[in-house]
Every structure is written in C-alpha cells, then in structure tokens.
C-alpha cells in the first residue's frame, strides 16, 4: 500500500471517529434548540453558546441563596418551577426580610425571545438581568462583589466555573453568562396548542376551537403567536394603582409611555396567577371582566382597546367560556415538571 493510501485511510478513520464522538455529545446534552414554528431567538447565543457545564452551573446559581445578603433568597424563591417560574399566589413578591416589591414577579419562560426584560423593559440584555434583583434592597439586597466573593470561597463553585469556562476565575460576566445559559433553556413549547399546531395527532375540542377564533379576533394583535406576546409595551386600561407605577415611562421618560407595561405571554396562565404587572387579578375570569367592562380610558390607553367609541370589547358568557377553554390549551405541563430545570438534590 502506498503512503498516500495509508494517509487516506487514516483520514477516513479519524473522520468517522470525530463524527461518532460529536453524535454522542449531542445525545447527552442538546443545548439550545429553536422549536419548530418559533422565530429566531433574540438572545445572542453566539456570544454565549449553551454548554452542558454552563447550563448546570447556571442552574446551581439559580437555586443558590448565597446570591442574597443573608443567604436566604435564591432566584428560585420567587421564580418557582411549579408556577412556570413565577411567584404563585403573590400579587407582588416578598423578598429578603419579607420586604415587599412593587410588581408581580414575571414567569421565566421563553426568555431567549425577549427583546427587553422586566415589566418596563428597563433591562435590554438577559446577561444584565440578574444584577437587578440581586442588588434591589427589597429583593436580594446584596452587592455583586459580595456574591462573587462568596462563590469564590464556596466549593464546588471554583471547580464548576473551571468546567464551564476553562479556569477557576469567578467574574461578573461568567456568572451572568452561566445564569443566561440556564434561563434561555427554559423553553415552553409543549402545550396542547403546540401539538395541535404541529399536527401531532391532537385536535382542539369544539369549545377550544371556538375560543381560538375569539382569541384571534380580540387578543392576538398584542398576544401574538407563537410566543403569545408581541414584546411591546402597552397601556391596557388598568388605571393607575395606589403607588402610581408609570411603567415604561420610568425607563424612557417619554410621556407617551405612561402606564405602559410589557405585554405578557398567555402561555402557562394556569400556573402563573395572579395576573397583571401588580398582580391585581387572581383569576382569569377577573381578567376577562377587566377587558369586557372595566377598561379605563386614559390618554395612553392602547387604541386597540378603544374602538368604535367604547373601551374594551364585549364577549358573551359562552364566548368567555370558550376563550378560557382555549387559554387552557396553552398550559405546558411538561415544562413545569421538566427535571432538567429543577433544583438538584443536595
């Protein structure tokens, strides 16, 4: 056999070996995947590719109470998986020392598609998001410097950072990137609605089908499929609350943005009560009552909620039932039970 033939054979063997190795890795950890029918993510994955080690470190940090001043509150404290990573049953969340915040803790799901974070969009990059609750006096009331110092002194964090990022250095950027890797993986795309749309042998009931049509007529311009939000900021006529939270205006200082808040997704509503930025509605019928008869006219009220000279829109009792039936198809039981996202047993 000639030298050339030997080289070719060696090359082919090496090539096959490389293939089988990478296939094995894929089988173990799939990383971030864009679900069928979903748009391209907004999060810049190229700047932070999701790895098994980074994701696992992010998960550990998410459930780490050392992120708070007195080591009592973790991210998972106000973002419970069983509640689609929100704080079920709390209109506004209580953080450290039982101090109350002013807004309802939003669910952490499908954040990879969020163009801005927080009810007012004040945070424009997921990598910067955790700094807000960590340093907020009513949430975790800690400094980033202290958090990094605690992690440096707490095994196995240095080793985990080494696995994820190649050295034991624990920096703000690495900590944020790890948390982002965990959070972008929190994808909810396994509801009944998704199965129906993907034609996976499931169909809507008659009531759900009617409800879907009602949703398309009255809700879909803001709560756009498939994420069930258009990521915009709108005033839905709630009227000013007792603390006169002006929402988006606080960030832009534009008077046209007064009382506007981010359009929340309609996914997983069964797990995320109460509703609205201040958690003022405990049930979905209360939400529908708002839209049908309680929308308050204000200068920045969304024009879609003021058509033909009256506010809100009307739905018969039957239509409301049908709409609620459809909304139930957006609940993703697999998401709230996915063991990959749960806190590891200590």
């Amino acid at each position: 056999m000639s030298k050339l033939q030997w080289m070719m054979i060696t090359g082919i063997v090496l090539f096959l070996f490389a293939c089988s190795k990478s296939e094995q890795l894929v089988a173990i950890f799939q990383g971030f995947r864009q679900p069928a029918g979903f748009p391209a993510p907004a999060y810049k994955l190229a700047n932070n590719p999701v790895t098994k080690e980074g994701f696992e470190l992010g998960r550990k940090l998410f459930y780490e109470p050392r992120l708070s001043r007195n080591n009592t509150i973790s991210c998972g404290f106000c973002h419970l998986q069983a509640s689609a990573f929100t704080h079920h049953g709390h209109d506004v969340s209580h953080g450290i020392d039982d101090r109350l915040g002013s807004r309802n803790s939003p669910p952490i799901m499908n954040l990879a598609w969020n163009t801005a974070l927080m009810w007012d969009g004040g945070v424009f990059d997921l990598d910067l998001q955790p700094i807000a609750p960590i340093t907020n006096p009513v949430e975790m009331d800690e400094t980033m410097e202290n958090v990094l110092q605690k992690l440096r002194n707490t095994p196995p964090y240095p080793a985990l950072f080494q696995r994820a990022f190649g050295s034991t250095d624990i920096t703000t950027a690495r900590m944020m990137k790890a948390l982002s890797q965990f959070m972008v993986m929190l994808v909810s795309d396994q509801s009944k609605y998704d199965s129906v749309m993907r034609k996976q042998g499931v169909t809507f009931t008659d009531a759900e089908q009617q409800g879907y049509a009602i949703y398309r007529r009255h809700c879909s311009s803001c709560h756009q499929e498939p994420l069930f939000t258009d990521q915009s900021f709108r005033n839905n006529g709630l009227g000013a609350g007792p603390n006169n939270d002006r929402g988006r205006y606080n960030v832009t200082l534009n008077p046209d943005d007064q009382y506007k808040f981010k359009v929340p997704s309609l996914r997983n509503l069964a797990y995320t009560a109460p509703y609205m930025h201040d958690g003022r509605f405990y049930t979905l019928p209360a939400v529908l009552r708002h839209y049908t008869s309680e929308v308050q006219d204000m200068p920045t009220l969304d024009p879609l909620l003021k058509q033909g000279g009256h506010t809100g829109f009307s739905l018969t009792a039957t239509e409301q039932e049908q709409l609620l039936a459809f909304l139930q198809t957006l609940n993703d039981k697999k998401f709230v039970n996915d063991t990959r996202f749960a806190e590891e047993a200590p």
Binding site: D125, L128, I131, N136, P137
Partner: peptide, 27 residues
C-alpha cells in the same frame, strides 16, 4: 450596550447601591 464580557475593570456592571456606578433596573 456591549456584551458583558467586554465590560471589565471599572466598567464591570456590578456596582451596588453605595459607590456603584451602574443602574441594574434600567441598564
């Protein structure tokens, strides 16, 4: 608005409420 990994040293967005030079709530 640069990626967080490019913001090191005095630009590390980790300031606290005291002498920190960064707003967490409004990046």
């Amino acid at each position: 608005t640069m990626d967080i990994s490019r913001r090191t040293g005095v630009l590390d967005p980790s300031g606290g409420m005291g002498d920190g030079m960064y707003w967490g709530w409004n990046s």
